[in-house]
């Protein structure tokens, strides 16, 4: 067994510096690496390129890095819930690249799996395809999209073990598994870190080979963005 454990979130983020490109897991505020985001705020690293499905809300998630002006460029599929984001984008302070959600997921998976690029029908005939190679297969048009390139991938899992094996919960899984192994170094923060051997190998979602550092997270807020309910019967 190869031990991936680090003792603190500070140690987990060692090497993250100004100007780097980071992949961050999560969908909305669901399954985001809360501890790592807080530590990035504390570190004050700037000029970051952040690749994540969304950009958080004004006072949580990646919104915290935006407030602090630490992000130079944001790559995302949907950024609708963040006023500060919109302000920085419209004023030109923040560079933004919007890409289709499935293309974002596949660009991560391609990097993880060693594919330099792939063809997808998404975005053909739209501004997303501008400047990109297109090609017909069986009479349908496709756009060539490239694997992401990033320095660090930062993900959040429900359970993990000291070998770096990960298990996700509910829809907090989302982009997290696809981002593991899609950057030079993958950091996983988990709600519950257990000794190797305690997780059932049949239930592992991401094998430890895709993870370089794993750390026990703490104080998860798990904020709900849209609390929708129906009355008790």
């Amino acid at each position: 067994m190869i031990t991936k454990t680090v003792n603190s979130i500070q140690e987990a983020l060692e090497g993250v510096s100004d100007g780097m490109t980071l992949l961050l897991g999560g969908f909305g505020l669901c399954g985001i690496p809360e501890n790592a985001i807080s530590e990035l705020v504390r570190l004050g690293v700037k000029d970051l390129t952040c690749i994540s499905n969304n950009a958080g809300v004004d006072d949580f998630g990646l919104g915290l890095l935006l407030q602090n002006r630490q992000i130079k460029k944001m790559v995302a599929s949907y950024v609708g819930e963040n006023d500060e984001f919109e302000r920085q984008m419209l004023s030109g302070e923040l560079e933004v690249e919007l890409i289709p959600q499935g293309t974002l997921a596949e660009r991560c998976r391609a990097a993880q799996a060693g594919f330099p690029a792939f063809y997808t029908p998404a975005g053909f005939g739209t501004e997303v395809a501008e400047g990109k190679e297109t090609r017909a297969f069986d009479g349908k048009m496709y756009v060539l999209e490239q694997a992401v390139k990033a320095d660090f991938s930062i993900v959040k899992a429900w359970k993990g073990d000291t070998s770096g094996n990960l298990i996700f919960k509910g829809t907090a899984r989302n982009f997290n598994p696809n981002m593991c192994g899609a950057a030079n170094i993958t950091i996983a923060e988990v709600e519950e870190l257990v000794p190797a051997g305690e997780l059932d190998p049949n239930q592992i979602h991401i094998p430890g080979i895709f993870v370089q550092r794993i750390v026990q997270g703490s104080n998860y807020e798990k904020r709900i963005e849209q609390r929708t309910t129906r009355p008790q019967p």
Partner: peptide, 16 residues
């Protein structure tokens, strides 16, 4: 139901 929301279980509109 009210009181049974799970932050780890949402739809694409971010609703529980």
């Amino acid at each position: 139901f009210e009181g049974e929301e799970d932050a780890d279980l949402i739809n694409a509109g971010k609703q529980t």
